[in-house]
Structures are given as C-alpha cells and as structure tokens.
Design a protein around this nucleic acid. Structure first.
Lengths: 200, 200
DNA sequence: CGCGGATTTGACCTACGTCAACACCCGTGG
DNA sequence: CCACGGGTGTTGACGTAGGTCAAATCCGCG
C-alpha cells in the first residue's frame, strides 16, 4: 500500500484540501501537524480537528470535503490520489477495516469535543487543550514544550476569542499551574491543578 | 446480513447502550428515534447525536462506547451481537465499506454540529434544529409536525438551557416564522426567515 | 535599532444562565 | 361536569462569563 502513495512535503500555512472541493488526495500524516477547519459566511474560522502524525486525512468516497486541511507547521504526508484509493479499498478489505476503526475513533473524539464546546467554561476549555497538547507533544526529558498553535488558533479551536484564551492562561500562570517563559513556550508545573480546572 | 440480525422493540426511554460499557449490540434503526448522550460528572446531559431510521448505532471493535443510546420514542431496531458482527465484517468487505461511508458521513455531521455549538447564537441554534427536524420528519401534506424532543432535550442537544430555547421559540412565533398551536406541535410558516436566523 | 505582528491588559457591554413565579395541558377521581 | 395535581412549558428580574473595542507591551526579524 505504501507503494501507491508518495511523500508530500507541505510547508507551514499551505492548504492540502479545500473546504467544499472534492478531496483530490487522501493520506496519512507522517510528521507535522495540520488543522481541519471550516470558515463560515461571516469569515469566522472554526477549527474542527487537529491531525497529528499517523492520523488519516482527506475524504474518500462520495461528496466534497466539509472542511479544509491546512498545515500548521511544515509537515510531511503520505498521499494517494483519491480515486485510486477508492478503488484500492475495494480490493483490500483490511484497508477498509483499518480505516473504519480510525474513523470510529475520530467520531468518538469529535463527540467528546462537542461536550467541551457545549458545556465547559472558558478556563476549562483552555486547560483541556493545554493538557492535550502537552500530552501529545511532550518528549520525556524536557519539561517545556513549544505550542504549535498561536493564541488565535487556540481560540478558533476552542470556540473562544483570543483575549479570553490569553486571560485564562495568565490566570493559570498566576495560580502556579503553568509557566510561560516566553512566546509559545509552555511548562506544566501542576498537572493535577490543571486537570481540576479542565473538568470544571 | 439481515439474517444475522433480529428485530428489537425498544420502548420510549429505554437505554440500549450504556456509556462506558462495551457495546454489546450494534445495529440499525428501523423506525423511531434515539438519542446519543453523555452525562458529565455534575449530572448535566449533553446529547451528542440523534439517530434517525436507517442510521447505524453502537460501537463495533475496540473499546467501550463513549455515549449512551436511548430511545426518544418507541423504536424498533435491527440488532446484531457485537462480537458476531465484528467477525462477520472481516468476511464481508462490502459491509465494512458501507459502514465506513456512513461513519465518514456521521463524522462530517458531528463536525458541522461542532461549528454550531462553538459559534452560533442561541436563536441561531434553535432555528437550525427546528429546520433540521422539520426537514427530517415532515411528511408531504401535513404542514404541522409533532416535535419528538421535549424542550429539555432540545436544550441538551444545543448546549443551552431550557428557558433560552423557550424564549427563542416564542420570539420566532412573534416574528411570524413559525406557529406553535400547542404543546409540541410546530408549523414552519416562513422557511426563509428561519434560515436567515439559523445562519446568523 | 526599529518595524509589524502577536500577545497581554483594561474598561465596558450584552447574551445567556440562574432563580423564581406562573400558565397550560391532560388525566384522575369526586 | 368540575376540582385538583403534577409535569411541561413560558415569562420576568437579575447576575455574570465572556465578547468587544482600544491601548500598551512583547517579541522575532531584517
């Protein structure tokens, strides 16, 4: 299957799949980080998901993609032409199976994100995101991570406004839960504290 | 495939799959209406989806289900024991394919619902829901439909509070977009007007 | 060093949640 | 037929989380 695909380098900021277009390619993230986003009529962007390495992107079969896919940092993908992929799937049931499992997982994640958007307070949302990113990005050894998202992007993901994100973070810092040495650097100092906020 | 399944009558209010349990059955909705819901630590329920006839429910493969499935009205399902289904899937690639398509559609729908929850005003959410239910339930001929959800359930679905739902609806009625003859009856009188609200 | 975009901070305002009363609908039993 | 009662829906008064607008500050980069 890997023979069908080819490596694709995507520089930061470039869009791979455009909202509303038929998805021309599908593929896996090898390295990097992409956002899945929808921009509504009034120009407000909502990020509906983040694709980490090993995640699948694109919309096989049927209709057009409901969201754009854009690289947040320089990324490398393994892509397949969509139509070839659709056909390939018919002949290789295990592929469809594997993809089905992942899609079910994605669906579960989307649904729990819905709960966050519908019910949690702004600080709880921000804390959840910080924990999630810390968990997925942290390398054992260095306790400070570089956040891959700007404040604006965090806001777009959480359904908040940039000022609210900023205020939440400085309040966490004041409470000693985190440190923000500068720019996008983050150190979690009190995981439990942050978790308590996240579940409030 | 239909030979594997058996009919299951589910009275209104009964739960088929419990949040956190391994899904024991999977299946299709034949008739009726079910809610998929998560209840958080503080007892607030968030409905993460509605299953209409022909929709698939339950969680094949892997882990436990992230949400409960409960009948909103008396419903009939076509269910399969989960483990048998998992095995069956391996031998019948077309089934996995079909299910994959549906799951991708569900994922798209979940994501656009995320946009609604994250960004839309309360009246816009309510209008969206009314339009959606009107579209899916209306039979040609009778212009008034009986809403299958209580105000409380609408609120749980929209991430609002019951009073806000009620207020939005009476304001739509005052504006002449809808009529609420009594109880759960709804007549949409100005589709365009409602759509305008829904996209605000 | 100086510019331009990101981030923070502050003052203010409003949509929506909260709490509490009230009205409606429909069944039951007198 | 009417009185009663509980569940569901509506309305009102009020408080606050978080949005808006504007200014100050930080930071990366040529």
């Amino acid at each position: 299957m890997h023979r069908l695909g080819r490596r694709l380098q995507v520089p930061k900021g470039q869009t791979v799949v455009l909202e509303g277009d038929e998805s021309l390619v599908v593929g896996n993230v090898i390295e990097g980080l992409l956002k899945l986003s929808v921009v509504s009529a009034d120009g407000v962007e909502q990020i509906v998901g983040i694709a980490y390495p090993a995640d699948f992107i694109g919309r096989p079969f049927g209709p057009s993609s409901g969201h754009s896919v854009t690289a947040l940092v320089d990324s490398t993908l393994c892509v397949f032409p969509r139509r070839a992929f659709d056909a390939f799937t018919e002949e290789h049931p295990l592929l469809a199976q594997a993809l089905l499992r992942r899609t079910l997982d994605d669906l579960d994640r989307a649904r729990s994100w819905m709960v966050l958007l519908a019910r949690k307070s702004a600080p709880a949302r921000v804390a959840s995101l910080l924990l999630d990113m810390n968990r997925r990005i942290a390398r054992p050894g260095n306790r400070v991570v570089r956040l891959p998202l700007s404040r604006q992007q965090m806001a777009d993901l959480l359904g908040l406004v940039i000022e609210t994100v900023s205020r939440s973070m400085t309040s966490f810092k004041a409470a000693g839960f985190i440190d923000l040495p500068r720019g996008r650097l983050l150190e979690v100092r009190d995981l439990e504290g942050l978790e308590r906020i996240a579940s409030g």
